[in-house]
Amino acid sequence: MRKAITTDDLRHILARCVGIEEDGELEGEILDQTFEALGYDSLALMETAAVLQREFGVVIPDDELFNTDTPRALLDRANRAVANAG
C-alpha cells in the first residue's frame, strides 16, 4: 500500500511550483478555501497535478482536476488514486 499524500505534502508542492508569500501564507486552515480564493488559476492547478503525478504517481484526468475546487477536494481525489493503485 502506497503512502497517502498529506496536507503538508500538498502545501510544499503549492509552495514550490506556484509560489506562496513568505512563511505562513498557507499555514492556516487552507483546506476548505477555494483555489480561486487562494489565488490559484487553472494553470496553477495543472502544474500542481503534474507534480503529484511525478512524485506520487497519481494521475488525475483534466476534467476531474478542474472539478476539484479546494485543496481538500484535490487531496481526497489524489488519495483515492493512491489507494486504487494499491
Binding site: 511550483c17 506556484v18 509560489g19 513568505e22 489565488g39 494553470l43 502544474e47
Partner: peptide, 8 residues
C-alpha cells in the same frame, strides 16, 4: 515581482 508570478 509577486511570488505568484515568479514561477511563471
Amino acid at each position: 515581482i509577486s511570488v505568484r508570478l515568479l514561477p511563471q
